[in-house]
Design a protein around this nucleic acid. Structure first.
Lengths: 173, 173
DNA sequence: ACCACTTCTGCGAAATCCGCAAGCATCGGA
DNA sequence: TCCGATGCTTGCGGATTTCGCAGAAGTGGT
C-alpha cells in the first residue's frame, strides 16, 4: 500500500546532511520523516507496521517516536472540525501592532479561545484563529479582550462560514 | 489525574437533547466529547484508560472511537510545526472571488500545497494556508496556480514569520 | 407487549507494547 | 589509533492492549 523506504546507509547520510543545513530544527533524517508520515496517516499505527514500512525494527521505531514526542517535534492527537462537532463560532483575526509584536503574540497565546497564533509579513502583523461558543462570546473576545491589549492598533475579523479542507501532511510530501 | 465523568443515564439524555438542537452535526453526547478530549491529550491513550476516565467499558470506548473515525468526526494523527520540522515556507492567502466561491474553494482544496481552506465573511471570501518548500515554490503556487484560477479577482499574502501557538482542543474546553 | 435496533458488558485469544541486555557499526574527539 | 558516545538490531519475556464475539440491557416504534 505505501511505498517502502529503501534506507541504505548512504542514502540516510545524504539526507541528514541535506537537512542539517537548516537552522534550529533538530536534525530530522529521512527515516524520521517517514515515521512521521506514517503517523500522519494513522496516529495509532503499531510500531511494528511502521518499522516494516520505513525499514527499521520495532524497537528502533519505538525509540524514535518517543524521542520525537519528547523533543516536541510532533504530537499525536485527535483533531476535529469544530463546526462539525457543533455549536461554535470561529474566526481569523488580523491584527496590527505598534511596539513589540512578540509580546502581543504572547498575550494572545495565553487566551484559551485562541487556537492558532502566527506572526506574519504583510498587511497584518499577527494572524490569530479564535474558537468560541457563540457570537456573543466571539464579540467579547475580539472587542473586549484583543482590542484591549496595549499596543494593538487595529483588528480585522474573518468569521468562518465553512471549513473546506484541513490536512496534516506537514513536514512530508 | 483527569476528572471523572459521572455518566448517569439522565445526564446523558439531557446532553444529547441539548446537542440535537444543532444542525448537521451527528449527535455528539457528553461521553463522546469526553472521549475526544482524552484523545486530544494523547492520541495513543489505551481504550481501557479512556474507559476508566469517561465511565465506560473498554469495548464500548473502542466502538465509539471507531464510529467517530468512520463518521469523520475526528481523526487521530501526528501533527508537527512545519517551520520546526524545517526548510519550508508557509503563508496565509486571502482571496477575493467573483462568481461561485465554492468552486474556487474546491480547486484550492485539490492542491497538495494547500493545507487549510476556509470560506469566510469579511474582506476576503476565502482564506487558504499554503505550505511550500521554499520561496520559489511559494511564489509559483500563489502567482501561477492560484491567481490563474478563473474567478479569482485578487489575492493578498501573509508569509509566516513565526508560529507562536497551535493547539487542538477543538470541540471541548 | 413485542420486535427491531443500537449500545454496552464480559471474556477469552491474539497482538502489541515495553523494558532490558548483548552485540555490532558509525562517528568524532583525544 | 584508541576510546566513548550514539544508534540500530535481535531476542526475550511479561504486562498490557487490542479484537472479535456472544449475551444482556436500553430505546423507539407499532
Amino acid at each position: 500500500m505505501h511505498s517502502e523506504v529503501v534506507a541504505s546507509r548512504s542514502a540516510d547520510q545524504r539526507d541528514s546532511a541535506r537537512e542539517s543545513r537548516n537552522g534550529n530544527s533538530p536534525q530530522l533524517d529521512a527515516v524520521s520523516l517517514a515515521i512521521i508520515q506514517q503517523l500522519q496517516e494513522d496516529g495509532r499505527r503499531p510500531y511494528a507496521a511502521i518499522g516494516k514500512a520505513v525499514g527499521l525494527s520495532e524497537a528502533a521505531v519505538r525509540q524514535r517516536v518517543q524521542k520525537l514526542l519528547d523533543q516536541g517535534v510532533m504530537q499525536i492527537v485527535a483533531v476535529t472540525d469544530p463546526l462539525t462537532v457543533g455549536f461554535r463560532r470561529q474566526a481569523m483575526v488580523g491584527i496590527n501592532v505598534e511596539g513589540d509584536v512578540e509580546s502581543i503574540a504572547d498575550a494572545l497565546t495565553a487566551m484559551s479561545e485562541v487556537e492558532y497564533v502566527v506572526m506574519t509579513a504583510g498587511s497584518f502583523d499577527i494572524l490569530a484563529e479564535i474558537v468560541c461558543e457563540d457570537d456573543d462570546h466571539l464579540l467579547d473576545v475580539i472587542n473586549k479582550r484583543i482590542r484591549a491589549l496595549p499596543g494593538v492598533r487595529s483588528t480585522e475579523s474573518f468569521v468562518y462560514l465553512k471549513l473546506k479542507k484541513q490536512t496534516y501532511m506537514w513536514g512530508t510530501r
